Simulated assay, not measured.
Amino acid sequence: MRKKISLLFCGLAVTLCFTGCGSSKETMAYDEATVQQSTEFLIEYCASMQDDTVEQWETMTDFALESQLTQAGLPFTKDGFLGALDAWQSAEKECGEYVSHGDYTYEASKDELQVSTEAEFADRDAHITFVFDENQYLDSMTVDAEYTTGEILKKAGLNTVLGMGTVFVVLIFISALISLFRFIPAIEAAFKKKKDAPKAAPAVQPEAAPSVEEAEDVTDDTELVAVIAAAIAASEGSSSTDGFTVRSIRRRPSNKW
């Protein structure tokens, strides 16, 4: 019985040991002095740089920029360094000129290290956060301005008014557009009526009356006169044309001879 109880306690102890080992989190090893030196250099450089400094760095090639950082012995990546310069310029526009900063706090995980500090600017305070990768190279830097509760509520109210105003403007526009739909049938009927209207018939010009041929003067046509006279005499049963004289011959319009 005692052996069974001992084995049970041993099993529980082993289980608790494995559980404790599994729940422990591994953190990356870092040199606090080296990290602090890098952050101090970056803050001092950003605070003293001119307005066109960022443009000069951005116009450099990747090889030249990385060579400059390597020669200076700075543990900064290209993107991390340029991002830090942009973030600092934006912070100065929002918070004013840099004054000082406080102590650093370190939060390490398995593959990154976060270093943060409270900074004082001319217009408002800000929270600066540096993120280093597993090789202790600067990955990013952010500067978050700190607002009072009243400023936050004011900004939230302005955003709410702006959003609701935009919604109401869009709804009014949609309502006005829908109200114009009642004119569509009248416009469509007008276009249809115009399309179906008969076109004016072209004016018919009167045809020219056929020209009446001038009667031919056949008074001198003796041969034709003799033939006609003989035909008339034959129709009357006379063998001679002495009883009449053909003086003129005129063509009748209705006859075709």
Rank of each mutant, 00 (worst) to 15 (best):
V169T: 12
S90W: 04
F18I: 10
F168A: 10
W257R: 10
Y98K: 03
M141Y: 01
V225P: 00
C46T: 07
A29F: 03
L65D: 06
K256E: 13
Q50L: 01
Q36F: 02
F41Q: 05
F168G: 01
L180D: 03
D31G: 04
T70L: 13
E32L: 02
S38Q: 15
R247D: 15
C95H: 03
E58H: 05
G102P: 02
T39P: 02
A84E: 05
V161W: 12
S254L: 08
E97G: 07
L85P: 04
V227R: 10
D221T: 01
T59W: 10
E188F: 11
Q205G: 01
P198T: 06
F18T: 06
L7E: 10
T142C: 03
T166H: 05
F121I: 02
T160I: 10
G157N: 12
E213I: 08
D123V: 07
T105R: 10
R247E: 14
E94I: 04
I152P: 01
D133G: 04
G20Q: 10
E55C: 00
A229Y: 02
E94K: 11
G157W: 14
C10T: 12
Q56Y: 13
F244N: 09
S100M: 09
P210D: 13
L113K: 06
I249C: 00
F173E: 07
S6P: 00
S248F: 04
V225F: 01
L42R: 07
M1D: 02
E214D: 09
R252A: 09
K93Y: 11
V225A: 15
S254P: 00
V218W: 15
D51W: 07
A87D: 09
L113Q: 08
M28L: 14
A108R: 09
A122V: 03
F168L: 15
L153P: 00
T59I: 06
L8F: 14
D62M: 02
H101L: 10
T19M: 10
G80K: 04
Y30R: 05
A230V: 07
K195M: 10
I152F: 09
S211T: 13
A197W: 08
A108Y: 12
A208V: 11
F81S: 01
I184K: 15
S175I: 15
D123F: 08
E92G: 00
I228Q: 07
L16A: 13
T77H: 07
K195W: 09
A13F: 13
F132W: 06
T105G: 11
S235M: 08
S48T: 13
Q136F: 00
L7N: 09
K195C: 01
E55S: 12
D31Y: 01
S38I: 01
K192Q: 11
A209S: 12
S254T: 06
S48G: 04
R252N: 11
D123Y: 08
P202E: 14
V170R: 02
A13P: 00
Y104V: 04
D242T: 05
D79W: 02
